[in-house]
């Protein structure tokens, strides 16, 4: 996989300037550009300890309305039975059920998702409404053995691994920013996806890095997350 000149990408993350300042190298995943790594390209160890990655440019989608669960099942999507639970599809797409009738879909770490492609191309059934999430929400990943300890500094919900199982969702306040936290472990590595309003993601990014500093956390690129899988 070759490196990418990020300034030529059609879509840049809201954190693009932060990444440039930190000396990021970029790669193309699917047709999206994300940070591959900062400085060292051996960040796996950092990600396993405490890392923060920005996947905001990768594909996402959302659907809402009383007809949504039946419509999604008709597209061969595997849905969690309970709200505030998430499940991985066979292609690695994360399907988060935010309420009885609302779904958030996020692509796999290769930037590809047959599930999202087929859902966005399919005709919407009655009482199903599209909620585009790519522009409205940012997507950060906080991972590593110290991730729960870090989140305890900025979030009121108990997200420790033995209290908050893999696949559970907390829609809550993180550093005073409303967001959706989905525990989605990368192999053996504890990992939380954080979806929040894109207009305040710079503040959230800085706040999380500040909270991580105490535990020797650092920003990592998508390559480190892929290596942890």
């Amino acid at each position: 996989m070759s490196s990418t000149i990020a300034s030529s990408a059609l879509r840049r993350s809201q954190l693009y300037r932060r990444h440039i300042e930190m000396g990021a190298e970029f790669i193309t995943l699917g047709d999206r550009v994300v940070v591959s790594h900062y400085g060292s390209n051996q960040e796996k160890q950092q990600a396993q300890h405490l890392g923060l990655a920005d996947l905001s440019t990768l594909p996402r989608a959302g659907f809402k309305g009383p007809g949504t669960p039946d419509w999604a099942l008709g597209l061969a999507m595997e849905l969690p039975v309970q709200p505030n639970r998430a499940t991985l599809q066979s292609d690695g797409t994360l399907v988060a059920r935010l309420s009885q009738s609302e779904l958030l879909l996020a692509s796999n770490l290769d930037g590809l998702s047959q599930c999202i492609a087929s859902a966005t191309e399919a005709q919407l059934a009655e009482s199903v409404y599209s909620l585009p999430r790519s522009d409205s929400h940012s997507w950060l990943v906080l991972c590593g053995s110290q991730a729960a300890t870090t989140l305890a500094k900025v979030c009121g919900v108990d997200l420790r691994a033995h209290k908050f199982a893999n696949g559970e969702i907390a829609q809550t306040s993180i550093a005073k920013i409303n967001g959706v936290i989905v525990r989605n472990d990368l192999g053996e590595t504890l990992s939380y996806c954080i979806f929040s309003d894109s207009s305040s993601v710079e503040f959230l990014w800085d706040s999380l890095l500040d909270a991580m500093a105490e535990f020797e956390g650092a920003a990592v690129g998508a390559q480190a997350l892929r290596d942890c899988r």
Binding site: P83, N84, S99, G156, V157, A170, Q171, T172, S173, N178
Partner: peptide
């Protein structure tokens, strides 16, 4: 901190409401 129980999300700080 006061707590309020959301029927969907469970018990949360009142500042979230």
């Amino acid at each position: 901190m006061k707590l309020l129980t959301c029927p969907l999300n469970g018990q949360r700080n009142i500042t979230e409401f």
